[in-house]
Simulated assay, not measured.
Amino acid sequence: MDIADLTEELVAIPSHRAGDHDERAAGDFIASWLRERTDATVRRDGAGNVIARKGTGPSLALVGHHDVVPPDDSQIEGDDYAVERRNGRLYGRGTADMKGCVAAAMLAFAAVDPAGELVFASFVGEEQGGIGCRAAIEDGFAPDYAVVGEGSTGYSAAGVTDVAVAHKGRRGSTIVAEGEAAHASEPEAGENAVYRACDAVDVVRDVQFPETAVLGHSLSGSVAVTEIDGGSAWNVVPERCEVTVDERTVPGERAPLERVETVDGVSLRIDQDLPPMACGDAAFADAVQSAAAAAQDGTPEQVVKPHATDAGWLADAGTDCVVVGAAEPGEAHTADESVSIDVLDRCRAIYGRVARMWDGAQN
C-alpha cells in the first residue's frame, strides 16, 4: 500500500481528546489494518493502545502515537479532518505529528521478516503527557530497543533525516508564596506574598542550568519563569502568589529548584515531569544511523532534540531508544502542518532496514 494513501486515511480520522473525537476510531483503524495484513498478534490494551508482535528474540519496537492536538478550524472537513496532497507534501492535523510515521511503521512492520521480535506500538495520550505509554509500561511493555517515530528531519541539514540519540525532558513547577493580607495603607500589618515570590524568583535566576553528554553529544537544559499570578485588589497586600517555572531537563540531572523553599512562606509544587531520553547503546545508535544513511542521499548525523517524547518514558523504564521521524522543526501543532511524502517513504525504509538486521547481538 502507498505511504501517502495510508497516511491520508489515518490522518482523516479525528483523534484529539474532546468528546466524540478521542483516539478510539484511529486505534480501531490501525488494529484492523494490522490484523488484515499481517499474521502478528495484535491487541488493544485497556488504555486504547495498539500493540502488535511477531518474530522471536531480542525485541525491537517501532513506536508512535495516534492522538493529536486539537485541530485548527481550517483542518476540519465535515466530521473528518481535512487532508490535502500538494507539491509532494501532505497537509493536515497529524501529518507530521505523527500519523505519517505511524503509517510508515505500519507498512514496515507488515513487510519485514524481522531479525528478532518486532513490536509495533501506537499509543494514545502522548499529547497529554504520555498517558498511553505509561499505561503500557505499567502493564509490562518493555522492549529491548525502540525506534520512536517523532521528528528528526532537518536537524543537521535541510531535508536530512537524522537519528536523535537524546532529547530533553520537561519539568513544570509552581512556586507558591503565602503571606498575610492587610490593607495596603498599612503594609507592615501583613506579609506580602508577591515580595516573597519575587525573592523566590531571584533564587531561580541564580540556578545553574543542568548539562550532560550522551554518546559524545552535549545536552544543556534551561530554567525559565513563565507566569506569575498574585493579589486580589489594588489596595490589599496579597496573601498568595504563584509563579510558574518551565525547566527543560537533561538525562540524570535536575536544576535544584527546591532552593526556593529557603524563602519564608514559599513552597515548590511539581506539576509535570516528562523524562528526558538518552540512548545507552552506541552500537544500536550507529546501526540505525547506518540504516538512515542507506535510505537517503544526504548524510544523517546523530543529534539531540529539544522536545520531550514517549521515548523518555521508555528509556526511563529501561528501553534503549532513538528517535527517527519525518517531521521537521516547527511543523507540528501548526495550522498548516504538513509532511514530505518522500521523507515518509524514507522513514518506512529506515524502519524496515533496522528491523531486518537488528537482533541485539551486534554489540
Rank of each mutant, 00 (worst) to 15 (best):
R35S: 09
L274Q: 13
P238E: 08
D67E: 15
V194L: 04
Q128I: 01
V236S: 12
K168T: 07
V176H: 03
D45A: 13
E211W: 13
V207C: 14
A111W: 00
A349Q: 03
P14C: 09
D359L: 01
T41H: 11
H167F: 13
Y195D: 14
P143T: 03
S222M: 07
T38W: 08
L107N: 00
G252E: 08
P251L: 13
F120N: 03
K305S: 10
I137S: 01
P71I: 15
D271T: 05
V304T: 08
R269T: 15
L268H: 09
V42E: 12
E126D: 00
H333S: 06
L274Y: 12
L107T: 10
N87T: 11
Y351W: 13
V260D: 12
L274A: 14
E23T: 02
A327Q: 10
A4V: 04
A184P: 06
E178N: 15
V112Y: 05
V165R: 10
A52R: 02
A166M: 06
V119I: 15
H65T: 13
E239Q: 11
T244Q: 10
V214N: 10
S232D: 04
H307M: 02
C279T: 04
G48H: 15
V339G: 00
V112R: 06
A315W: 02
P251K: 07
S122F: 00
A40S: 08
S59W: 10
A349Y: 01
C101D: 11
Q75T: 14
S173N: 02
H21Y: 14
A142D: 00
E77T: 10
Q302Y: 03
D202S: 03
V194H: 03
E117P: 09
V243P: 14
V63I: 11
A47D: 04
L10P: 14
G64V: 06
A283P: 11
A361L: 03
L107S: 04
M1A: 15
A12E: 10
A285N: 15
T7N: 02
L60R: 13
E337K: 09
D97V: 08
V102C: 12
P71D: 14
S156G: 01
D310G: 07
G280L: 15
T161V: 06
E301M: 07
A317W: 04
R43C: 14
A315E: 09
E178F: 11
G94R: 04
R37H: 15
E328C: 01
A157D: 06
R248A: 05
V339Y: 00
S232T: 14
R89P: 03
